[in-house]
């Protein structure tokens, strides 16, 4: 049977932003997977909490300063993140580079504070189930922090060495979207690690 051609797609664009691209959908899948993992880990926290009295067993909740500093800086990191996202949408190369560099530095600083958070938990992972789940939550979030930070750094380097076209701007936009996830996912975990033990105790 001969093919009957009814239309031509060569005039369509070869790059786009957001939900028009397959990669955005991949990212959404990834966020759903990770978000589901976080939600289940939080569920495990409450499950274990219902078995233990007092909570924490040592009565010493984690110290607050590192956690507060981390949370404050993480929320502030949305400023360079949103700035970068707007620069990408406007396809402004200079501003995108600037935003990515700022985001890389903030990310490095956040990782440094995270180090102190691990040292202010007042419990080891092998002390009891409380210690295990608190370390697990903090560890899970740290893995995401490192992943997105590494992605940001690589993208930042790339904007200096290579031509930046629509598809690359779109990558950077997706990176910003993922950072939103890293920020939002932290808030319930922050509450579970630092505040639930205080309120429950």
């Amino acid at each position: 049977m001969k093919a009957r051609v009814v239309g031509d797609v060569s005039m369509l664009p070869d790059g786009a932003f957001g939900s028009r691209t397959p990669i955005w959908w991949g990212l959404i899948c990834f966020i759903l997977i990770e978000g589901g993992g976080f939600a289940l880990a939080c569920g495990a926290y409450f499950f274990l909490m219902s078995h233990t009295e007092p909570w924490p067993p040592s009565r010493f909740p984690p110290d607050l300063p590192a956690g507060i500093a981390f949370t404050a800086l993480l929320l502030l990191s949305e400023i360079p993140n949103v700035f970068t996202k707007r620069a990408e949408k406007a396809q402004d190369e200079r501003a995108t580079q600037l935003g990515l560099i700022a985001a890389s530095f903030v990310g490095a600083l956040l990782l440094a504070i995270r180090w102190f958070e691990f040292h202010s938990l007042n419990v080891r992972w092998d002390d009891n189930a409380y210690g295990s789940i608190v370390w697990a939550l903090l560890f899970l979030h740290t893995v995401h922090l490192i992943t997105d930070w590494a992605d940001t750094v690589v993208l930042a380097v790339f904007t200096f060495t290579h031509e930046v076209d629509t598809n690359r701007f779109s990558d950077v936009a997706d990176n910003s979207l993922y950072w939103h996830f890293v920020v939002i996912a932290w808030l319930p975990i922050y509450a579970l690690i630092y505040w639930v033990p205080r309120l429950a105790g």
Binding site: A44, F47, L48, H51, T52, P57, W125, D126, D127, N128, A129, Y130, G131, S132, I133, W135, A136
Partner: peptide, 18 residues
């Protein structure tokens, strides 16, 4: 695997796990 390898207690009832 972390219960088995690094001594966490997620499933160990003696230390608050289940």
């Amino acid at each position: 695997i972390s219960d088995r390898l690094i001594g966490t207690h997620f499933y160990n009832p003696a230390e608050g796990g289940d």
